[in-house]
Design a protein around this nucleic acid. Sequence first.
DNA 1: TTTTGACCCTGTAAGC
DNA 2: TGCTTACAGGGTCAAA
Length: 271
Amino acid sequence: MPELPEVETTRRGLQGRLAGRRIATLTQRRPDLRFPLPPDLEQRLVGRRLLRFGRRAKYILGELDDGSTLLLHLGMSGRLLLDGPPAGRHEHLTFGFDDGAILRFVDPRRFGMLDLIPAAGLRDHPRLAGLGLEPLEASFDGPALGAVLAGRQSALKVALMDQRIVVGVGNIYASESLFLARLSPRRRAGWLKPAQLARLAAAIRSVLQDAIAAGGSSLRDYIQASGELGFYQDRFAVYGRADQPCFTCGQPIRKSLQANRATFMCPGCQR
DNA sequence: TTTTGACCCTGTAAGC
DNA sequence: TGCTTACAGGGTCAAA
């Protein structure tokens, strides 16, 4: 489910509602998400104040008042829901806060994860070390993208989804960004010219920013922390539009598989 | 070193 | 209607 726009939208919801709040209770319903939860999680979390919520790649980072960091990843089906009713058998963790706020971690497929990192361990944490460029940072441009793609023989779309190269771009936004940049997902990643790299970097940034402004994309089970739906899915140019006419040139959108993931492109517009 | 494919788990939808 | 199969937004690991 969540790519960078959905994670960022969730982060903003948490920051607005929970920053500065103290964790009063924690209920765990099962010990295993993608990875086992820290065994002493409740003991280490209850009583701590959450100072602010940050983001690195698709990870949400909750900074605690003792210097440790609550690390959250939503996987493919994870949701963080604020103040709503109980979410049923896939609600694995429930946080209660000092002002009565409730945060529910719901993840049917359990590809999500949660960890608590001591202050000294954040930089070297195995989930965070080695992550690639942040596409919304000011330094993300054509030359920066060219530097990390240099020498890559793999297909361009596969490279864009590699979190060691660029973070936050998943299957939906890779297809949408490549359409906007008019580049074929099957091009070799390391062979782009400077003008093409500049176009692609700008397209990635533009697609992600527009999706954040729209509250993310709500397919199947993604909703914002507030319970509202995102609506960027209404603007998809290619994703999920197999055989439908391209809005630009009218040719049918083509669906294929790359690295066992669905890829959508317009054969008329993308070269 | 880089790239590819299998796999983790569950729900949904399509096809028979 | 009921069963089976394919597929889904992510990330990791082993093998090639």
